[in-house]
């Protein structure tokens, strides 16, 4: 299967590192993740370097702007370009966020929460199913951080996400940092939360750093991953019993490439440590 080559800990391909990565074939990164919106329709020197890396190395794609839970019509031209891009990269799947990002044609460029209600779930399911029919690869949805519930809730976040994933029959990009941050902000145990979820749908994991501002912890992608989040990743991988790819996200206060490669190596060590026993001959794998 194509996705068998996607294991270990990858990195997001970010603009400040393009030149270095393009000139560095033996970087040790098993795959890169790229945001199609930042490549499609772009041009110039950085664009050429990005394309050179994407044509050379294994790539997963992760979108930021498709408003899966929104009401605005799809941008048909963008979806056609996206489909061509996904085929060009050879990505085994494409992920978007379970959220809304715009209203009435106005793009807000923020991952905003959906109401935890039956009608919002039905709407997100219908939209995800429709979006899936327009993509050439399987769609994954990612759980977001949220800082407030949007209106009165009829269910909790876990039931909402599980319901949408099952209803739309799509895979899950599980962001363990988002689970951890939501646990801090809303006072729940991340492992208990994950134990309720359809982990068989997890195809990829995201991990990142966060920061506390006053009483609220924000998913900043601007700091190193802390040990409890790494431990949550390991706990999840052990439950999964299979080597799903993990992506280290870093979008703010981006360090130089060497520092990021060192953090990736630290996460890879944690990844290997937890998966070695279950993947060894005679090991217990499940999920």
């Amino acid at each position: 299967m194509a996705q068998d080559r996607f294991t270990g800990v990858g990195l997001g391909l970010r603009r400040p590192h393009l030149e270095a990565v393009a000139g560095l074939e033996a970087h040790g990164v098993p795959f890169w993740e790229t945001c199609p919106e930042n490549v499609i329709g772009d041009g110039g020197r950085h664009h050429r370097m990005a394309c050179a890396v994407l044509d050379r190395d294994p790539v997963l794609t992760h979108g930021l702007a498709i408003s899966v839970g929104g009401f605005d019509p799809w941008d048909g031209e963008y979806l056609r370009d996206l489909g061509r891009f996904l085929i060009r990269t050879g990505t085994p799947w494409h992920s978007e966020h379970l959220c809304f990002t715009g209203v009435d044609g106005s793009c807000l460029h923020e991952l905003l929460p959906l109401p935890f209600t039956r009608e919002a779930a039905r709407h997100a399911i219908a939209r995800a199913k429709d979006l899936q029919t327009r993509l050439p690869v399987p769609l994954l949805l990612e759980n977001i951080t949220y800082y407030a519930e949007l209106g009165p809730s009829e269910m909790d976040e876990a039931d909402f996400i599980a319901g949408v994933l099952e209803g739309a029959d799509v895979g899950w990009l599980l962001d363990v940092n988002n689970v951890y941050v939501n646990g801090l902000n809303f006072g729940f145990d991340p492992k208990a939360w994950l134990s309720r979820m359809p982990l068989d749908r997890v195809a990829q994991i995201h991990i990142a750093g966060h920061k506390r501002f006053g009483d609220i912890t924000v998913d900043t992608h601007g700091a190193e991953v802390i040990d409890p989040v790494i431990e949550l990743m390991q706990w999840t991988l052990a439950r999964l019993g299979r080597p799903v790819p993990v992506l280290l996200e870093r979008d703010n206060h981006i360090p130089d490439l060497d520092a990021l490669l060192a953090e990736r190596a630290r996460l890879q060590h944690a990844y290997d440590a937890v998966l070695a026993p279950v993947l060894a001959p005679g090991g217990v794998g499940h999920g």
Partner: peptide
């Protein structure tokens, strides 16, 4: 929107203000 929705926004003031701050910053 009705009283329940208004109350939900009101009761989650810090979280709502976080969204206002983050989203405006990104724009």
């Amino acid at each position: 929107l009705g009283d329940a929705e208004q109350r939900s926004f009101r009761d989650q003031g810090p979280g709502m203000r976080t969204y206002r701050e983050l989203a405006r910053m990104s724009l």
